[in-house]
């Protein structure tokens, strides 16, 4: 438990120290997304939508695999 809390404190302090840098990095990222009529923000949106649907399908696939395995196991035990 003490080890765990130590880790927590360490990581959060690192995160706090990094904060100014991440903030400035964000600004340049934003500029990129704003370039040429903000087309990259649109593309980011399209990628998010397709990725979201993909991840959802992936999860259904995983659950189905698990289900198939369960059903197969039951058949073998019977």
């Amino acid at each position: 438990m003490p080890d765990h809390s130590f880790k927590c404190i360490m990581w959060s302090s690192i995160a706090l120290l990094m904060f100014p840098y991440t903030a400035s990095a964000e600004v340049s990222d934003l500029d990129f997304l704003r370039s040429t009529g903000k087309i990259y923000s649109v593309i980011a949106g399209v990628v998010i939508v397709l990725l979201g649907i993909g991840v959802y399908l992936w999860r259904i696939d995983n659950k189905l695999t698990k289900l198939e395995k369960q059903i197969k196991d039951e058949h073998e035990t019977n």
């Binding site: 934003l30 997304l33 704003r34 903000k38 923000s41 980011a44 949106g45 998010i48 939508v49 979201g52 649907i53 959802y56």
Partner: peptide, 18 residues
């Protein structure tokens, strides 16, 4: 719900850059 989450994310992105 999936579409709702995606809509919130893309909308937030859109709002940020416009």
């Amino acid at each position: 719900i999936l579409y709702g989450i995606l809509g919130l994310i893309t909308g937030s992105l859109w709002a940020r850059f416009t």
